[in-house]
């Protein structure tokens, strides 16, 4: 059997890739997808720990995370569409009205 730590490390690796992608990319949609990737990494860790401790709560937490992600995507994409109407761009660096 695969040790749990392998799964956790895999989750950590995916999370780091997602975080770096957030810092790297300029396309707002891609950044969004990177965030989804990070959520997925966290989900993997949840499921792995649920298996380790034989507790279903971890799996249910993943279920709720997915629900919230669905809601977040719905609102977030609506926001992006609205912003696109005025900016005509999905470049995140063009959204910098709030600055010191």
């Amino acid at each position: 059997m695969v040790p749990t730590s392998f799964y956790i490390f895999l989750a950590a690796l995916l999370f780091t890739i997602g975080a770096v992608a957030v810092l790297f990319r300029r396309n707002t949609l891609v950044i969004y997808m990177a965030v989804e990737l990070m959520l997925n990494a966290a989900n993997l860790a949840f499921v792995a720990f649920a298996r380790q401790f034989e507790a279903l709560d971890g799996q249910l937490f993943v279920f709720f995370v997915m629900t919230v992600a669905a809601a977040e995507v719905a609102v977030g994409l609506a926001l992006i569409v609205t912003i696109f109407r005025t900016k005509h761009s999905v470049d995140i660096d063009t959204m910098r009205e709030l600055k010191g």
């Binding site: 950044i31 660096d93 709030l98 010191g100």
Partner: peptide, 18 residues
């Protein structure tokens, strides 16, 4: 001095969090 930190770039802020 500190207002310069508030660059307006979202990725900048994300970097701070990171």
């Amino acid at each position: 001095v500190a207002r310069k930190l508030q660059s307006g770039y979202v990725r900048n802020y994300a970097l701070s969090v990171f």
